[in-house]
Design a protein around this nucleic acid. Structure first.
Length: 622
DNA sequence: ATGCGGTAAGTCCATGCGTC
DNA sequence: GACGCATGGACTTACCGCAT
């Protein structure tokens, strides 16, 4: 019932939602992704909103899974914005970025709640709707048209000083534990003892303990607990002591407490921290968020090779020409001088692609004006910092690069005769869009089959329904084929319909455009097409299925009597040897057919079955 | 060594459910 | 009601065995 949108499509919708906003740029990433918007950097992660399946159907949510690549985001000083998307209402939801980041990677899947009614209201009124949730949090729902406004004004909606933040969340046990210790009056006695051991005067001890008891017993700590609960560790509580003491009702009593409120609290926090040091040894004072923010600067000058040395070696070499494609774009960063310049920004704990991009501008000027920031980001990502320098030889041709990247994931790139380029982050989206825009009805007529299903049809396949993506006018596109096969299909369509499309593959790792030189279909899996006398045609994705179908059609016993030998046994048998259990497929009545053979052999077997049993099958390998 | 066909294993994600 | 883990389907990728 809920329309599932792939995470790449969610990113695409996000980009489309910012149409008209010319001051945003995706830096890198495929949902989650890193972008700048109106001069501000942030990380975005978008998920489909779906019902929470509670008894109250109004409760919807997204869940934030634990992911390795979120660690970089979590440790970064840059804001992390989680967006839920309701495709039905074309409405986004979001939550306090600080809260979200705190909960990031805390559990296997952390829930962020919304209400369907809120989403519908935002859609029907085309306005921003806000709701307090029962977990001390708030959700904002807004129409996708308001995306730029919300992202640019998040600070207003979720003011930095506003309510923290997952209080009491089961997923923040450290924070809750620390606060419990802090607010437990029993610890004051031990604190007094410790002060005495340190040689403090009894007057000081009495004053400090009096202050602490008052703070606890009179509810001051409780009232401002959110200040403390925003930290996970007791030793971080020092960060909020000043802010706490500056609250009017506390500063008013400070004089009465001999101006020792601040000192007493810090001493108490130090004592408590020490008491748990064996438990908290991983969370020393160096771990504070402020230090984390500062650290990128600290990382800027790691020992590296002297660029001058490289310059000497490389001055006569053209590091760009072999890696510049026909579109005038660089396909690999190979120049060692540039690599050394980029290293401080990219080969460090907190990478700064924007600063690296500035280096690129300084280095190349206008030379690669056709490349956008995203192109550069892909090249940055492709640098292997363990071995960044390229051995440039005369053989370093595009073809060699193709061979190296052949096994990597590839995207589809389609260029129309007018120069328009379609290249979505997912090949399937490019594939379906191009089909949608190029006469699906005529493509249907071409009768391109996959797994015996027409590539473009209006009939749902029972077996492959989920792989049939609906496009305009109710056409269904069969998508359960690999990227190279998609490319071949588009080439075939282009040829048949005279569209003049240029269809290429793009390496997801290097961003390089790959134009396979081999003939279409030679790299694809072969199929055996069988036409039965009644006109039925099968052409399964797996050749073994053709064999299985034919044996079923012919009758297992009859095929067995033909005594066709495979793997030193009959093609049709009831008790396969252990090593052939997997390739032996059931064909009814307890019989199995041994499919452990190559495609030509299966083809010959089917031909023999047809000939010897007079089945009159048309068999061909395609 | 390399490529190919086939399958197992892994990933992603929406849905379902037990617990507090 | 809120929460997050478990589950299972769809899809992708890694790996294996075999043939060349």
């Amino acid at each position: 019932m809920i329309k599932k949108i792939s995470r790449y499509s969610l990113q695409q919708i996000f980009i489309e939602s910012l149409e008209g906003c010319n001051s945003f740029q995706i830096i890198n990433g495929l949902n989650p992704f890193h972008l700048t918007l109106n001069g501000k950097e942030c990380y975005i992660y978008i998920k489909n909103l779906s019902p929470a399946y509670f008894s109250n159907p109004d409760i919807w949510r997204v869940q934030l899974p634990r992911r390795e690549d979120f660690e970089v985001i979590k440790n970064s000083a840059i804001d992390f914005i989680l967006l839920g998307y309701d495709s039905e209402n074309k409405v986004y939801t979001t939550w306090h970025p600080k809260w979200t980041k705190q909960r990031l990677n805390k559990g296997e899947s952390v829930s962020f709640y919304s209400r369907l009614s809120l989403q519908e209201e935002a859609a029907s009124t085309q306005s921003i709707k806000r709701l307090s949730l029962n977990n001390d949090g708030e959700v904002i729902a807004f129409p996708r048209e308001q995306l730029e406004f919300i992202l640019s004004n998040l600070k207003i909606f979720f003011q930095d000083e506003s309510d923290y933040v997952a209080i009491g969340s089961k997923r923040r046990p450290e924070a809750n534990e620390a606060y419990k210790t802090f607010a437990d009056p029993k610890n004051i006695a031990a604190f007094a003892k410790s002060m005495a051991n340190d040689g403090n005067s009894s007057a000081t001890i009495a004053n400090y303990c009096h202050i602490l008891r008052s703070l606890l017993n009179d509810g001051y700590i409780t009232r401002y607990r959110k200040l403390f609960l925003s930290y996970n560790n007791l030793n971080e509580y020092h960060n909020v002591v000043s802010e706490f003491c500056s609250q009017p009702e506390i500063s008013d009593r400070n004089e009465q407490w001999h101006n020792a409120t601040n000192t007493a609290l810090n001493a108490y926090i130090t004592f408590l921290s020490k008491g748990q040091s064996d438990v908290l040894h991983n969370h020393g004072a160096d771990d504070s968020p402020q230090d984390a923010i500062d650290s990128p600067q600290n990382q800027l000058d790691p020992p590296s090779q002297n660029p001058g040395d490289k310059d000497e070696d490389s001055s006569d070499i053209d590091w760009e020409a072999p890696y510049t494609n026909s579109a005038g774009k660089l396909t690999k960063i190979a120049n060692p001088v540039l690599i050394d310049k980029l290293r401080p920004f990219l080969d460090c704990e907190y990478v700064s692609p924007v600063r690296a991009y500035n280096e690129i501008e300084d280095f190349y000027g206008d030379r690669y004006s056709k490349m956008n920031m995203g192109d550069w980001m892909q090249l940055f990502k492709a640098i292997n910092w363990a071995a960044p320098y390229v051995q440039l030889s005369h053989e370093a041709s595009t073809q060699a690069e193709v061979a190296k990247t052949r096994s990597k994931t590839e995207l589809l790139r389609v260029e129309y005769p007018d120069g328009r380029v379609i290249q979505h982050p997912k090949a399937i989206d490019t594939f379906t869009e191009v089909i949608e825009d190029n006469y699906p009805d005529l493509i249907h007529e071409l009768n391109i089959l996959h797994a015996n299903v027409n590539l473009v049809t209006k009939e749902r396949s029972e077996q492959y329904a989920s792989a049939q993506k609906e496009i305009a006018n109710g056409w269904l596109v069969f998508t359960n084929i690999n990227t190279r096969r998609k490319r071949e299909d588009l080439l075939k369509i282009s040829e048949e319909l005279g569209l003049g499309l240029k269809v290429d593959l793009v390496s997801i790792v290097t961003g390089e455009i790959i134009t396979p030189s081999n003939e279409p279909s030679t790299s694809a899996r072969q199929k055996i097409k069988v036409t039965f006398p009644d006109g039925r045609v099968i052409q399964p994705h797996k050749v073994l299925e053709s064999l299985v179908e034919v044996v079923k059609y012919a009758g297992p016993e009859r095929v067995r009597d033909l005594n066709i030998i495979v793997c030193a046994d009959n093609l049709v048998l009831k008790t396969p040897k252990p090593r052939y259990i997997k390739p032996c497929k059931p064909v009814g009545n307890g019989w199995f057919v041994n499919t452990c053979s190559d495609t030509p052999t299966k083809y010959e077997q089917i031909k023999k079955i047809s000939t010897d049993l007079g089945l009159d099958l048309q068999v061909e390998i395609i």
